[in-house]
Amino acid sequence: MSKVNKLFPVFMFFAMFAHGQESARVIARQGQVSFFSYTSVEHIKAENNQVLGIIDLTSGEIAVSMLMNAFIFEKALMREHFNESYVESDIYPKASFEGQIQGFDSGLEGEQTRIVKGNFSMHGVTKVLEIKTKIERKDQIFVLSGTFEALVQDYQIKIPPLLAGNIAKTISVDFRFECEPYAN
């Protein structure tokens, strides 16, 4: 019997142990992203409660994916304008973010504030974003939350002059992901 074969069960034991100890990825299938547009004419608020977020706890990599179609507005007409004219969700159905949590310590119990840096894509435009994010760990649950601002014109969203007064140039975006261990 070779040395490798002899060591194999030992290796397996450690591999299983490491796996059982802590799952390497956490997931939120019902992450929340909402945005606000405040102008003197009108306040617009929309919420998406079906945002997917996955974090790799060892590398600190994070992936977020959301369908534009899933935003809920106060008025049905706002939703229609949003999907049909502004983000054109039939052509660009989703927005995504892929990045990394800088200096992330997944073993830290409690709260830590970190910068998440990565590429955010929406409406066919990709931007590098650095988002200050609060990360709270309670046992195996990781809650990520924060706020950032996005310029409408950065994403080539065209607003007709007639409605320019109704929609803010800077949109404030809030997010919250409650991530649980991911089995697969």
Binding site: L52, I54, A63, L67, N69, A70, P93, K94, S96
Partner: peptide, 14 residues
């Protein structure tokens, strides 16, 4: 039917 999520490869319904 909301759309398709290609990260997890799931069709989404809300």
């Amino acid at each position: 039917c909301v759309g398709y999520d290609d990260l997890l490869e799931l069709v989404k319904i809300d």
